[in-house]
Amino acid sequence: MQSLRVFNRWGQLVFERRDFPANNPTLGWDGNINGRPAPVDAYIYIAEGDL
């Protein structure tokens, strides 16, 4: 993956990772923000992969 970004409903970036293998589930977003569980809410993600 080139990048994975997760935003909250107000457009604030809550997670970002770049240049990682797409088949490794431990490198994705774990649902935490600053080490605490993210509140139940709407989140938007943008995933950019290599072709």
Rank of each mutant, 00 (worst) to 15 (best):
M1W: 00
M1Y: 10
M1V: 14
M1E: 05
M1F: 05
M1K: 06
M1R: 06
M1N: 04
Q2M: 08
Q2C: 12
Q2D: 15
S3Q: 14
S3C: 15
L4F: 05
L4S: 00
R5V: 04
R5T: 11
F7N: 08
N8D: 15
R9E: 05
R9S: 10
R9A: 07
R9P: 08
W10E: 01
W10S: 05
W10Q: 12
Q12R: 15
Q12V: 04
L13S: 14
L13W: 09
V14G: 04
V14F: 03
V14S: 00
V14R: 04
V14Y: 00
F15S: 00
R17M: 12
R18W: 09
R18F: 08
R18P: 10
D19K: 04
F20K: 08
F20S: 06
F20Y: 14
F20T: 04
P21W: 10
A22R: 02
A22Y: 07
N23Q: 09
N23S: 02
N24Y: 07
N24A: 00
P25S: 11
P25D: 14
P25M: 02
P25T: 13
T26V: 08
T26S: 10
T26Q: 12
L27V: 14
L27F: 07
L27R: 15
G28C: 03
G28R: 00
W29R: 04
D30V: 04
D30P: 02
G31H: 02
G31F: 00
G31D: 10
G31A: 03
N32K: 00
N34A: 08
N34H: 00
G35Q: 14
G35I: 01
G35R: 03
R36D: 05
R36T: 01
R36E: 06
R36W: 05
R36F: 04
P37R: 06
P37A: 07
P37V: 14
A38Q: 10
V40Y: 01
V40M: 12
D41Y: 00
D41E: 07
A42E: 12
A42S: 12
Y43A: 11
Y43T: 06
Y43I: 05
I44D: 11
Y45T: 15
I46S: 15
A47E: 05
E48L: 07
E48F: 12
E48P: 03
G49W: 14
G49L: 13
D50Q: 09
D50G: 04
D50P: 13
L51F: 15
L51S: 11
L51A: 03
L51V: 15
